[in-house]
Every structure is written in C-alpha cells, then in structure tokens.
Nucleic acid binder design. Structure first.
Length: 263
DNA sequence: AACCGTTCCAACCGCAAACGG
DNA sequence: CCCGTTTGCGGTTGGAACGGT
C-alpha cells in the first residue's frame, strides 16, 4: 500500500530527476515502493518507476521513429495486437509508452481507415488528413529511408516524387547534408578502407512559412544516427512537401504506410 | 494579438500478473 | 493454496504546444 500522505504528482522537476537518477546509479533498483523515501522523493514508487523506465533510463531512445521502426511496429501490431510491451521488446530503446503514444497519435487512424477503404470504390469514406507534426516526423523517416536505401544499394538516389500541380508551394524542405563538409553532396569513398570516419549526416529543416521551432535541439537541425556503408554514391536530394491545409496530400501518407508495411 | 480547436506526450489510474511468506 | 504486497501493463487524461482564423 502506498502511504496516504500528500505525495507529489504531475511533471517531474529537474531536481527530482537528478535525485532519482543518482539514487539508482548508486544503489540500483531494489524496491520501487520503498525507494522514493530513501531517495528523498515525495513520489509514489509507481511514479518513480514510470519516470525511470520511460524517460530517465540511459538506454531510452528519443526522437522520431525511423522507417524501420515504423515497419516493425506495424507488423508486430498486426500479429500481436496491443501488446505494447512485447512490441517494445523488439524495438531497442523504445518504451511501451512511447510505442503506445506513437501508435495512437500517428498510426491508429491511418491503419483503421486504410483497412476500411481497402478495395473500396467510390463512396468510400474520406481519408483522414495527417497532422503537420506527423508530416514533419514522417518526412524525416522518408529521408532516413532514402539514405539507407541509397547507400546500401550503392545506386543513385531515386528522383524526387513527382508533385501534383497543387503542390506548388514549396514550404517544407528536407535536405540531407554532410555538415563536416558543409556541402549538400556527400561523396562516399570507393572502398571501406578509405573511411576514417563517417560523414555526419543531419536532416535540415527549413521553414520559410510555417514550420517554426524544430522538434528539439538546435534550431533547424535534426540529427540522425548514421553509419556510412561502403559504397560509391552521391547523395543529393531534396524532398518538398506542401503542408497547406487545403491540399489533399493524404495519398502520399498512404504511400508511406504501404512503404512501411512493405519493408 | 487574441482566441479557439487540435495535436501530442508525460504521467496518471485501475487492474492483472507475479512474487513470496 | 491463500493472501498481502509489489511490479508491470494498457487505457486514459491533463495540459502545454501548436496551427489556423
């Protein structure tokens, strides 16, 4: 039983985080219910466990899901259902809470509507429009996927998707650059031995109209983990998306879903 | 600038499973 | 097996951030 005294609820302060982390680093996890008392925290053991598992644990992976993770998530959901912890076990660094949130905010509606409209003809219910945040997230996964595909295949990058006429407003841009060379062209060497270090690849966002602050970190920059493969390719691509609310670009989204399911 | 509706996610709650005496 | 305690899981929610008007 948790004590009935007034324990703190709500968001954790940096000081509380520090106390919890330093306690666990020093003494480990021995009893969640007792621990907060010894760690000087006025929290329930349950709250401490949640904070540690979902946020403070050093191996928690933060940031957007990449295409491979989305693919795994979709496949596992289709075979396991809402067994979030089982799915999380297959996605290193992702917590069940992360996965649950990602599913509910990005995938549930799309999967539901996709199933409902699969093979449906005229008169099918209209597809939902994805949110701008989700667009931003997926645009990053697209870029990641293109990088990986391009590099592993040692082939030229695919041409940018042909835009419908209605996509004439270039207000969102994802660029892949090598920041070490300050250059949009990443020239990979011919052989693996030529590598001393991998180019640092980042996704750059530009937001001339409405894409104000980036998801995190330094303005306009999102870093992606990247390991260069032995290949002789040049990556130079830009993908342009319209996010104008009156443009129906949901077809693009369903293509993304299909791509994730295909992988 | 102000307002309002929507999106997103950290954190909560209730319940079930696991544990152990 | 029983029963109290602890841990883990999944659904839900509060509120900050965001985007549109």
């Amino acid at each position: 039983m948790e004590p009935a005294t007034s324990l703190k609820k709500g968001p954790w302060s940096p000081e509380e985080d520090r106390k919890l982390v330093s306690y666990i680093m020093r003494y480990g996890i021995w009893n969640w219910r007792q621990m907060p008392r010894y760690a000087g925290l006025e929290r329930t053991g349950k709250s401490c466990r949640l904070r540690w598992v979902n946020y403070l644990r050093p191996d928690v992976r933060r940031g957007p899901f990449d295409m491979e993770e989305v693919s795994i998530l979709i496949h596992l959901y289709q075979s396991l259902g809402n067994k979030w912890s089982a799915i999380a076990a297959q996605l290193p660094g992702r917590t069940d809470n992360d996965i649950k949130n990602f599913f509910h905010t990005h995938l549930k509606k799309l999967l539901k509507m996709n199933n409902a409209t699969a093979g449906a003809g005229a008169g099918a219910p209209s597809r939902p429009k994805p949110s701008i945040r989700a667009k931003r997230l997926i645009s990053q996964t697209v870029a990641t996927n293109l990088i990986n595909n391009t590099v592993s295949a040692a082939a030229p990058p695919p041409p940018p998707p042909e835009s419908p006429d209605s996509w004439n407003s270039e207000i969102y841009q994802v660029s892949v650059v090598d920041v070490n060379n300050n250059n949009n062209n990443i020239n990979f060497s011919e052989t693996p031995q030529d590598y001393n270090s991998s180019p640092q690849v980042v996704i750059l966002e530009s937001s001339p109209n409405s894409f104000a602050p980036p998801l995190s970190g330094e303005a306009g920059l999102h870093q992606l983990p990247y390991t260069a493969a032995p290949a002789a390719v040049t990556v130079d691509m830009k993908m342009n998306f319209s996010s104008s609310s009156d443009v129906d670009d949901t077809a693009f989204w369903y293509d993304m879903l299909a791509e994730a399911e295909r992988l």
